[in-house]
């Protein structure tokens, strides 16, 4: 970003340079890091060098080890997230659309919400053993609450004037929900979904460090036993890349389904 956005880019400072120069500091850090490693100032037991990480990354990809673990992790997130979203949406619709539903479920859900769900890991292992079930259950539980809370408040936050206008247009209760309540709650629900994606990766990291035999978390844990900081860092980079791309997907989704918002319209 330019310090003086008002001044036009001059001939000596082409637009491409202005656009990419923000990436220079991180690049510089990587170069310094590599230099420190090559000069022996930074032990590989503390931190592997960027070149080593790149080589390890390539090796793990070529041997098929990384894709295999990645697929397992993605599968767990997908399964857990689907269940979490399904439960969150269902409960939010029940409590959001009916007072009776709110009386029935909301208090219990609000109580459960305050529980740090990662603290349930020991209980989950006792209940579900050490297979896939506790891992998926943990992701599902962690993602359910952000979806539930945001969709519930989204539904309840609908402008009553729009509902009133809708009923003067002769819309039935069901049509009001379909045309006004649910689309109006969508922006909030998408914020919740984005948050849920973050929670999903977090739960996965924790879940895969307990008795896992596959997955990115397992890769990282075994690397620790062999002091392989390069593999650990590859795992971290993969987590970061997954988080980033998930966020990007939701942003793209928002851009198309919330196209009516003035902030998107102007673009």
């Amino acid at each position: 970003m330019s310090t003086f956005p008002a001044s036009p880019p001059s001939a000596t400072m082409p637009a491409a340079w202005l656009r990419y120069r923000r990436y220079l500091p991180p690049l510089l850090i990587i170069v310094l890091w590599q230099a420190a490693s090559s000069l022996g100032l930074l032990s590989t037991r503390t931190l592997a060098s960027p070149l080593m990480i790149a080589r390890t990354f390539a090796d793990l990809v070529v041997t098929g080890e990384l894709p295999r673990h990645l697929l397992v992790s993605l599968g767990r997130v997908a399964a857990g997230l689907s269940i979490g979203v399904f439960l969150g949406v269902t409960l939010a619709l029940i409590t959001g659309l009916s007072r009776r539903g709110e009386d029935l479920f909301d208090a219990s859900l609000q109580m459960l919400r305050t529980l740090p769900f990662l603290a349930l890991v020991p209980l989950f292992i006792l209940w579900f053993g050490i297979g896939e079930t506790p891992k998926i259950a943990l992701v599902a539980l962690g993602t359910m609450f952000p979806i539930y809370l945001t969709l519930f408040s989204g539904i309840r936050g609908i402008d009553a004037k729009l509902i009133e206008a809708g009923s003067t247009l002769g819309l039935t209760q069901r049509e009001l929900v379909r045309h006004i309540v649910l689309p109006g709650a969508l922006p909030a629900a998408l914020v919740g979904f984005r948050y849920a994606l973050g929670v999903a990766w977090l739960s996965l990291v924790v879940a895969e460090q307990i008795n896992a035999e596959s997955g990115i978390g397992y890769l990282v844990m075994t690397a620790r036993d062999f002091l392989r900081t390069d593999i650990i860092l590859v795992g971290l980079i993969v987590y970061a890349a997954l988080g980033l791309s998930a966020d990007q997907i939701v942003r793209t989704l928002e851009r198309s389904v919330l196209a009516w918002r003035p902030s998107f319209v102007k673009e």
Binding site: K161, E164, I180, P183, G184, L186, L258, R261
Partner: peptide, 9 residues
Amino acid sequence: EPRLIPWKP
């Protein structure tokens, strides 16, 4: 207020 539904054209 016009009370148009913002997410419908």
